[in-house]
Write a protein that binds this DNA or RNA. Structure first.
Lengths: 214, 214, 214, 214
DNA sequence: CAATAACCGAGACGGTACGTCAGGTCTTTTC
DNA sequence: GAAAAGACCTGACGTACCGTCTCGGTTATTG
């Protein structure tokens, strides 16, 4: 499940000339993550990334529109790699598990420093917001859907009746889970330990099961 | 309820010399908010702020260590002004109310663009993180405490028994509420409308009342 | 007789990449002289020079280490242009001529204000002193050598026997002539008029012819 | 023969109020020389001088109009102290002696770095030029006059007949001697050793005795 | 001996230039 | 025609020093 490709050539009929090096793409994204670890978002410069990747700055600008988009692509791969939903036997356990995975991901220096920054930029850049949505947000909503399916199969949650309400609830849950973990980790700057994960999962689970009707 | 003063002179024994102009502080913070509205976080420069405030750049650097800290102070005042917790008769209504207030605050151009940016910077700057905590986070936790008190008075929530657990729960709720609203607004980039607020409040309320013990 | 080029790329093997604009060099040096005329040495700023030359400040710093070095190069060209030694028929006349030329040069606003300033800076900056020596001092010693040759051809001075002593004497004469004119013009702040030039030339000529041996 | 007092109160009728501290004057001038030695002219700042002297910057500005004037006063005292004209028995020896004294003075870090700088500034500041003239130049012309008197007493030079021509010649000699030594020391940056002093004195002496008429 | 006037230290103030750095673009030569 | 190299323009950065100002407080002379 390879993550987002960089912006492919826009013009349709491009066949002639030297082809773009695929190796360069990998090197650039790896260099970006590496630089992010060492320097953090504010210290990361495209010139430095280019130098680490053994690539000219020009090449970099030919493929990404700027620093933010590059970082989104570099970080998105980590989300695919690091987040999954192993079946832990109960919805409570599954929630705890994904919460702790997500917290661990946010604790990595690459993501910790970069995620809020690109979100901040995205408030003024629609293309960037769209890139974040497709490369990160929408891809990870699968976890919510999968978790609910399993819980329904186990009988922990009722079957969906209205598909529209179902989708809205999934979005709500995603915002609550992701938002709470991000806020705990980056704003409150407190650890997401076993205790917190358990208490958060209990709160969420209580809310989900209490809301019989709506 | 005046919000955080800028970094006062660190040396304790400061009585001599020309005193700092209090007028300048006000002008600088106002200019910062104004510039934030017009230019957004990335476009905001300290030189421009100084010019708008009719103040020299050096004056600005004498009082704040940098752009981020200044913005935190400038924005913190808005949180004090814009967030309160009028008694709407029920916990559900109180939650809905504060959620919508907070969402409205995050929709203002000053905060939308700046808040995530300073949080991003704070991941690499302990002093900045501390400033955010004292100027914004800790101050707004009062809303959670007040809401719970009222709900307890109404009999909607049980009385606290263990003060330690009580404090931990307050923190959890704060992370959930603030995180969910921020994520909905800035990451998912969807509106916090009446419906969402109602459904979120119901979810949270369910979780709170379901968790009898713990 | 084009004067000193600015500091060329230090690394030897530079062939690739965009070459430095030769046009920029000319524009910068011209702008420097122009700014020097209008603002004088203390008022001259590199930012202003860059703006006049239609060039970025960085371009300027890429080629010169600072204000002083730039001014040396800018002024050196004037020395090449403005000083020569037309054959006026006698050593006395030749000395008078070059003295008045030099005084006229020192009376120009570009040189008057800048020359002493860079010499002052050079007392603490070896690289600058070396630049002054190669770009100005050594180049103008040619005038002394040429004048002596002519005088010898006319029989006004004896032929050199010892080349070492000859060089030392040339240096001495250069210091005396240049030093006296500079001191008269800038320190005593009195004009180098016909009378002064004639009396100075007579003094020097007397010294030269009196010293038969060494 | 105490050298120039700093600018006294301009208003005539000042008698009342606290008088200016004479101690401060001494401390400031000493601090100036000290800072000049350590930092050189370009690195010397009035704030630093004030701190060294244990004095407020205000006090300093109350007495001198700026950096240059202060330095002139600080340096002028050295000229008085370090230059004299002991009778060495012949005009040649006297010239050599004063030349070497002057060169030694110019080799001190205070003077080396400061002298050209204030001269440079004086080209744009008439008050400063006047201060240099009265505090330094005119005071040291005494050496020329004294040397000539002695040489006349010894019979090495003819008695003056025309007082006007006599004064003009003294000025010329002063420019030649001071100029040559300054140029040798600061521009050519070569040492004024025994040999150079002897050859220079010989040249000058030759010029003086050759010029019978005129 | 009180009033007054000028001094003093400290340090904040508005300015201005500094030299550096990053973002992007453009121009070469090489592959 | 893409790639590497590197010069280019733009514009902000944070610092330093300038010379002025505003404080609280300290000497002197004058009344």
């Amino acid at each position: 499940m390879t993550s987002a490709a960089p912006s492919s050539r826009q013009g349709g009929s491009a066949r002639t000339g030297r082809p773009r090096s695929a190796e360069a793409d990998r090197a650039i994204l790896a260099a970006t993550r590496e630089a992010l670890v060492e320097l953090g978002w504010p210290g990361l410069t495209l010139g430095d990334v280019a130098a680490r990747a053994g690539v000219a700055k020009t090449t970099l600008y030919r493929r990404w529109p700027g620093k933010s988009a590059l970082v989104v692509d570099a970080v998105a791969a980590l989300f695919d790699e690091r987040l999954d939903l192993p079946d832990l036997g109960s919805l409570q356990a599954d929630i705890e598990g994904v919460v702790r995975q997500f917290a661990a991901l946010l604790d990595r220096p690459e993501t910790k420093t970069a995620l809020m920054a690109v979100v901040a930029e995205s408030t003024r850049d629609d293309a960037l917001r769209e890139r974040i949505r497709t490369a990160i947000v929408d891809r990870q909503k699968r976890l919510v859907l999968l978790g609910r399916e399993r819980a329904q199969a186990r009988g922990e949650l009722p079957r969906d009746t209205d598909p529209v309400a179902s989708a809205r609830t999934a979005d709500l849950i995603f915002d609550v889970v992701a938002g709470a973990v991000v806020h705990r980790t980056l704003v409150s700057a407190e650890p997401v330990d076993t205790d917190w994960a358990r208490r958060f999962a209990a709160l969420l689970l209580g809310g989900l099961t209490a809301a019989t009707g709506d």
